[in-house]
Computed example of a mutant assay.
Amino acid sequence: MIPAENPESPLCSAKACRAPAVWVLAWNNPKLHTPERRKTWLACDEHREHLSSFLNMRGFLKDVVLLTDWESAGGESAGGGSAADG
């Protein structure tokens, strides 16, 4: 795992990963959230596929976007929590 260079940088949501986030995984649990609601997990390059697969298998994954694109588009706060938080 790559340590974060800037402690203020968003970090990957994968359990125990301290790498800087590169991706935003926007998701929604239709049993709990309204259709337009988007929760977010952050992912480094190494964990993007694993976290995406986890959400997609449950039918929760809505979009995978580069963090820089998400921020420039005015996406919701990409803090997202950790993948362990579900």
Rank of each mutant, 00 (worst) to 15 (best):
N6I: 08
N6F: 14
N6T: 11
P7A: 10
E8M: 14
E8D: 15
S9H: 13
S9E: 14
P10E: 12
P10A: 14
P10V: 08
L11N: 07
L11E: 11
C12N: 06
S13Q: 08
S13W: 06
A14M: 15
A16R: 06
A16H: 11
A19F: 06
P20R: 05
P20V: 07
P20E: 15
V22D: 08
W23K: 01
W23M: 03
W23T: 01
W23V: 02
V24P: 00
V24K: 03
L25E: 02
L25Q: 00
A26I: 07
A26S: 13
W27L: 08
W27N: 04
W27E: 10
N28L: 06
N29D: 15
P30Y: 05
H33A: 11
P35N: 06
P35Y: 05
P35G: 10
E36I: 12
R38P: 04
R38K: 06
K39T: 08
K39I: 09
T40Q: 12
T40S: 13
W41I: 01
L42Y: 04
A43C: 03
C44L: 05
D45K: 04
E46S: 14
H47D: 13
R48G: 09
H50F: 11
H50Q: 10
H50P: 02
H50R: 12
H50I: 12
L51C: 04
S52W: 00
F54G: 03
F54P: 01
L55V: 01
L55T: 00
L55N: 02
L55G: 02
N56F: 04
N56Y: 03
N56H: 06
M57P: 00
R58N: 11
G59E: 12
G59C: 09
F60H: 15
L61K: 00
L61A: 04
K62C: 13
K62M: 12
D63W: 00
D63I: 02
V64R: 00
V65H: 05
V65L: 11
L66V: 03
L66I: 03
L66T: 04
L67Q: 11
T68P: 01
D69A: 15
D69S: 14
D69K: 03
W70E: 09
W70P: 07
E71Y: 04
S72Q: 11
A73I: 02
A73R: 08
A73W: 07
A73V: 01
G74M: 07
G74H: 03
G74Y: 05
G75I: 08
G75V: 08
E76Y: 08
E76A: 15
S77H: 12
S77W: 15
A78D: 09
A78Y: 15
A78I: 00
A78M: 09
A78L: 06
A78W: 13
A78N: 09
G79K: 02
G79V: 05
G80I: 05
G80T: 05
G81K: 01
G81R: 04
G81H: 08
S82G: 15
S82P: 02
A83F: 10
A83I: 02
A84E: 15
D85H: 07
D85C: 11
